[in-house]
Structure formats: C-alpha cells, structure tokens
Design a protein around this nucleic acid. Structure first.
Lengths: 225, 225
DNA sequence: GTAAAGGTTCAGGCTTTTTTCAGGTTCGGG
DNA sequence: CCCGAACCTGAAAAAAGCCTGAACCTTTAC
C-alpha cells in the first residue's frame, strides 16, 4: 500500500510517514499543494493525507481535482481548522474524513484503518471461465463485447458450471441445486436447458462449450481451435 | 434511500430523521441497542447512524456484529464521548465515521454525503447514468434540455437505480428501500411505479430504459441505437 | 373545505419462462 | 454392425410473472 502525504510542516509529515509505516504503508511526501496534486494524480496511491493550508494550492482544490479526475483513493483531510464550515467544505470537496489537529496518532491510524478497510470490498461480482464472464450483478453472460441475457434457470445452471471450472456436474446435482431437493423435475428438463445455454454460447461465439459425458453429466470445456 | 437511526434520545433521533429527510433519506428509528441490531441486520439500509451509549446493547457491539454479518452499509457513529480511545474503538468496531456531540447539522449532513457518495463524484447534488441526470435537490429527471418532475416514490426508485448503475435490483430490495421493510407493499406497487417511470423516460426520449429481468428484478440499460 | 397531486388496489390481458412431449440422433457394448 | 439407452431439440401447452388503465383512497396546499 502506498500513501501520499501532502503537508508543509515537515516534521509532522515525517512523523505521519513513520506512523503509516507501522500499518504497512509506504509514504511519499509533498510539501506544497502543486506537487501534491501532481503526484497524487498518478493514481498510484491507496491513501492521500491532505493538509488544507498549503503553499501554492490548498487542500480543497486538490481534493476536488482528484475527484474530478476520477481518482478514488480515500482522502484524509488533516487540519487545524475547526470551523464547521471548513469541515463541510472539506468533505464536500471530496474528502472522506476530516480530522482536526491536534489529534493522537492512535486516532489517525484508526481513521486510516477505517478508510482502507472499504477498499477490498469491491463488489464486482463476476465469475469467469477463460474469457467467458458471468456477471452476477447484471445477470448476463458475456464474451468479448457480446452479451446475452440469461433466464433464472439458465443463470443458475451457468452459475454452477462456472463455479466448478472444468469439473463434471451430474444431472442429479443440477436438479437438486436448480430445481430443489424435493422436486419432480426430470432429466429432460436439464437437457432442455443445456440446449438453451448451448444456443446462447453459440450466439456469443465463445470458445467454450458444454460437453456431455454420457452417464456422468456435463462440464465446461474450452474449444481452443 | 433508507437510514436507520439508533439513538435513545428521542428528540435527537427525531431531529436527525428530519435532517436526513432533506437529503432524501427515509429514516427508521430504534431507541435501544437490541432492536437497533435486529433492524439493521435486515441489510436494507444505506446508512446506519449509531449512538454508543444505548440501553441493552452498546454501539460498539452493534457495529461489530453488523460487520460480522457482512453488512456493508456505512456506519456513522455519533456520541458525546470525546476520548481518543473511544474514537479508536468505534472506528475499529467497524464504524466509518466518528462524530462527537455537539455537532452542527451541516457537519452531519456533509459526513452523510461523504459516506454515501459514489467514488468520483464531487458534488452530490446530481446522479447520472449516461446523459440522464437526476437532480437530487429539485427531484427533476433530465435528459438534454427536457425535464420531468418525479414524485417522491418515483424519485426514490430512480435514485436507487441510478446509484446502482447497471446492476439488477430486485423487487424485494426496492420494496424494502422505498416502502420500508416492514411495509405490506406488494410487488404490484413496484410494477405500477416502474410503469410511471417508463412513461417519463419515454417522454424524455432518453436513450435509457428500465429493463425487466424476469424473476430477478429491474435494471437500467442504455438503448444505444 | 376543496382541489390537485400523489399513492394504492384491482383486474384483465400480455409476455416470458418452464414444463411437457415426441421424434430424431448419438454413443458404446455386444 | 446392431440395439437400446441416453441424449438432443423444436414445438406447443401450461404456469408464472409482468404491465397498465382505471377506480379509489390519502395527503398536501391553499
């Protein structure tokens, strides 16, 4: 993890760097607003610690420009200003947390933990098999730029196949998982849906097929040609 | 958007509810920790405002249990305790922001905006999906120079769709977020409103539609021509 | 108090999904 | 090579889910 510290008080900046090191951040330090903005625009930081009063460019503008540039790193604004208006302005400029000096290091670190905790929770739910992708939040199956919508049962089936990789899945398993444990669905139901899915895969021209293993079941296979 | 306010000071809780209403949150209120946890575990809130000192169960435990249950809603911790240790404890329990009483409402609202805004948007007075814009302060939906005014329910629905991008939103989710999760609204209510929204989108001639994914729910789609 | 706007309920009709069915094809063992 | 079991698939029936106009109710603004 990398942090950028934009702070003109060099002693404080160094201390911050030390502290962040203890939670596994490598820090770079900028002592004025302009270089702070330049560096942070690189987009390589996982955290930006911003003072407000800075030479050349204030923290509000930096935050605003970062957000305008779609840089999503959490911004921790750090300042001596305690006015409510400043806080509001800071947060509305794009900062994620506003901490007023003086503060204890333990508090700063807790903020950093809170801010970075969220990072990993990117909910781009997607299953893939080679270049075939099943998007769990939009419910469609895609290969390259082609997309197909799946019905609910088709989706469940595909979901099972794609979470099993190349393993064989028996019809019984499919029936139990898709139709339910206590259902009277027959093998033919599965066959019909497999057929539907094959059509859609063909439409996508995906280099993936659902292979039949007689008496055993089905599995996904790459059709590298 | 729905918020849960867990606060035993009933007057404050009501005031908070009022404030949140101005940024388009419908709020439910719990006056003790146990019910607060139960309600928030439903997972249908977009924000949880938590007091720390509460009857029956304190805010720290609630935050911890919510995170354990993988509920990702932002938690705003709100308390009179100013000790650094408490702040650290609060943030480390899973809270995303720690605000000490007394605070001004403008500050609270700025926190809420910071917590709920999507990455990359500087000011939260407008949501957009492609060129379709939803103005959060006037409740207007606009495309190009055409505008329509949305009713409150229409607005809430659209708000949810537009903050979810292309992801599918189930009817249950919509009911829980728009009508409240203890309401007796039925699927048909949603359908009726979807129908209203579609008319308005058609009127705007916006290249966006609300697509039905049978048995899954709805989602926004670009109708690139 | 009244009107307008917003919200809810209902029923009939429409569309998509799911099941069923039947005839055809493929596979593997004898 | 032949046969039966297993599998495929188009079509059509059945079921489930969805849409929407209209009537009715509730709230809001004046």
């Amino acid at each position: 993890m990398r942090a950028l510290i934009v702070e003109d008080d060099k002693a404080l900046a160094r201390t911050l760097g030390e502290m962040l090191k203890s939670v596994h951040f490598e820090s770079d330090i900028c002592n004025d607003g302009e270089s702070g903005l330049d560096w942070s625009l690189s987009g390589d930081y996982d955290l930006v610690v911003l003072d407000i009063m800075l030479p050349k460019k204030d923290g509000f503008s930096i935050a605003r420009e970062l957000r305008k540039a779609k840089i999503a790193a959490p911004i921790l604004m750090l300042t001596a200003r305690t006015e409510t208006d400043d806080k509001v302005r800071g947060l509305d400029s794009g900062a994620d947390y506003y901490l007023t000096k003086p503060f204890e290091m333990s508090e700063l670190l807790a903020c950093v933990r809170a801010l970075t905790r969220r990072q990993g929770e990117v909910v781009m739910d997607e299953l893939s098999f080679g270049d075939l992708k099943l998007n769990l939040s939009t419910c469609d199956l895609a290969w390259g730029d082609k997309k197909v919508r799946l019905g609910k049962k088709e989706f469940s089936l595909m979901h099972i196949f794609m979470s099993n990789g190349e393993a064989v899945v028996s019809k019984d398993t499919l029936i139990n998982k898709v139709w339910g444990f206590e259902s009277d669905a027959e093998d033919n139901n599965v066959e019909v849906y497999i057929s539907f899915l094959r059509k859609k895969l063909a439409f996508l021209k995906a280099p993936v097929q659902i292979a039949t293993l007689r008496k055993f079941g089905y599995r996904l296979e790459r059709t590298d040609t």
